[in-house]
Design a protein around this nucleic acid. Structure first.
Ligand code: SF4
Ligand code: SF4
Lengths: 143, 143
DNA sequence: ATTAAATCAGACAAAAATATCTTATTATAT
DNA sequence: ATATAATAAGATATTTTTGTCTGATTTAAT
């Protein structure tokens, strides 16, 4: 099976978009995030904790506590979440799995693939998560 | 870790490109393919066997036997190997892991991502493996 | 003060992907 | 004929990813 992002990363992105779009209150608990996104509570909990360590998400313990975005949504890019969870290897290593990826010793598909990969990186780097609120809310309603 | 293709698929693509570029004899054994590509022999052996079942590769048993391309290299596309090993799910399911991917209920990054994904699919579909022989040989020399 | 509800940390479990082993079968070279 | 070297098939093992559980700590409401 081909994958772009790990499940952890997918869920992390979903949760970040969730927090950015549902800004009607301050803290969202792992329980309600899990319920709304229909993903395992303990798992998203762990993922959010790691995003707290990366400074993207903040948290408040205790009753009525929960998670919130640690930065202004227009300062959080999709690539920041990807980097925190999956790292950026997918953008630097060879798509064909050859070692020592570089333009000097390119893999056979170098010239074609390189462009696409750069475009993907640029897309994830330019889009900030505040731009997705409307579409995220629509998707949430439909889950 | 982000991944585009599974290890199986990467190795499968490498092996196919290997067979297409090294056409000086008829059969290449799993042993020498594994040696040259520096990947586990038993693993590439299994992968090649599955490609035999998909009709992309042919095989000959017994002493001096081995594997060969079952079709003309200019009829084998990269996407054929990907489809055989990983399937095409990566090109139809949501990059953010939301269920029910479609233009009707798009995921938040739909419009940006869709274009890239289509370009990737088109690239893998248009390139046939005979176009990579020179670059593959160069890469092999450098492993 | 007590209770309830939350994050946090770390151990644990299950599933999937990756890799290896074992045996059988086939074909060639000698 | 026999030995050798190859694919084939299926079981097994290892590693990574995904998911769960337990207990500790924190905070707020009652
Ligand atoms: S196309 Fe070039 S840069 Fe991209 S993976 Fe292959 S060698 Fe690396
Ligand atoms: S961008 Fe659209 S087509 Fe692509 S994964 Fe998201 S919903 Fe599906």
């Amino acid at each position: 099976m081909s994958v772009i992002f790990s499940k952890k990363c997918e869920y992390g992105l979903q949760a970040i978009l969730y927090l950015a779009s549902r800004n009607e209150k301050e803290y969202f608990s792992a329980r309600e995030i899990a319920r709304d996104l229909k993903i395992p509570k303990e798992f998203i909990s762990k993922i959010l904790q790691s995003l707290v360590n990366f400074g993207i998400v903040g948290s408040k313990k205790g009753k009525n506590g929960g998670f919130y975005l640690a930065k202004n949504p227009n300062k959080i890019r999709l690539i920041d979440v990807v980097e925190a969870i999956d790292g950026l290897d997918a953008f630097t290593t060879c798509i064909l799995g050859f070692p020592d990826c570089s333009s000097d010793v390119p893999c056979p598909v170098h010239s074609e693939w390189g462009k696409l990969r750069t475009m993907a990186f640029d897309m994830l780097s330019s889009e900030t998560i505040d731009q997705f609120t409307e579409k995220t809310l629509r998707k949430l309603n439909q889950l």
